[in-house]
């Protein structure tokens, strides 16, 4: 079943006289429970595509349907509400809120959802346990290592049980050991919690952990060497 449908999406930037078009009629279908990695040269438009799917950037043309909602049609406020309910975002640098503890950082997305305090406590507990940081709940980001911070970031991204989790180079600023830890964790999130993941990476090893590997080249998307066509065309 298609959870994410990216249909003929283009993104243009005006830079002086020149028009940069990192995405040009890109199509992508992601099914529920898939772990999709996205590679490509620097500046090829990976982050752009990821941010469009995450609903924090606007397409120039095309549609993005996620769990039946065309998010390109939502107003800015509605889009924020939609993100709260449907997207978990893992940043390259964790982007934790420094004045909040690990627990409070993880709780942050739940504050946006209709949920009792007891339910929130329960969910935060589960998310922290999933990233094995139960004993660090009361620590502030500055009291944790980079790897631990990133794990809190992952807990924060999965705590609201989002429709899709996006990760932009989640291991980009970690050492090899920690990278290994994080990748294993992401795999577990995908396999054990059944979450759908879209991960941008530069690292072939990291990409190989995913169930599908995509490449962005010359503004177009390829899987196993073939350009992805709209779903309708493929099934035909």
């Amino acid at each position: 079943m298609a959870l994410v449908e990216v249909i003929a999406v283009s993104k243009e930037y005006q830079s002086g006289e020149e028009i940069i078009r990192p995405l040009d009629g890109v199509n992508l279908t992601i099914g529920e429970g898939e772990f999709v990695s996205l590679m490509g040269a620097s500046g090829s438009g990976k982050s752009t595509l990821l941010n469009l799917v995450a609903g924090i950037d606007q397409v120039t043309s095309g549609r993005i349907e996620i769990a039946g909602t065309d998010i390109t049609q939502l107003s800015r406020g509605k889009l924020a509400d939609w993100r709260a309910a449907h997207v978990g975002y893992i940043f390259q640098t964790h982007n934790l809120i420094p004045v909040l503890t690990a627990y409070e950082n993880v709780e942050l997305p739940l504050m946006l959802l209709p949920m009792s305090a007891a339910e929130r406590r329960n969910r935060v507990g589960i998310a922290l346990a999933a990233v094995d940081l139960t004993n660090r709940a009361d620590h502030y980001p500055r009291q944790m290592s980079g790897g631990q911070e990133q794990r809190v970031g992952i807990a924060r991204a999965i705590v609201a049980n989002p429709t899709i989790v996006v990760a932009d180079e989640p291991t980009g600023s970690l050492d090899d050991n920690t990278t290994e830890q994080i990748l294993t964790l992401l795999q577990r999130v995908n396999r054990e919690l059944g979450m759908t993941l879209l991960m941008v990476t530069h690292d072939t090893d990291a990409a190989s952990r995913a169930t599908r590997q995509l490449r962005l080249e010359r503004s177009e998307l390829y899987e196993n060497g073939t350009r992805l066509a709209p779903r309708a065309l493929r099934t035909a």
Binding site: A54, G77, A80, R83, A84, Y89, N95, P98, L112, R156
Partner: peptide
């Protein structure tokens, strides 16, 4: 700036 953008990415409205 980045922290406030992160909050928006999580789903907090500008308001």
């Amino acid at each position: 700036i980045r922290e406030l953008a992160t909050l928006q990415a999580i789903g907090y409205r500008r308001r």
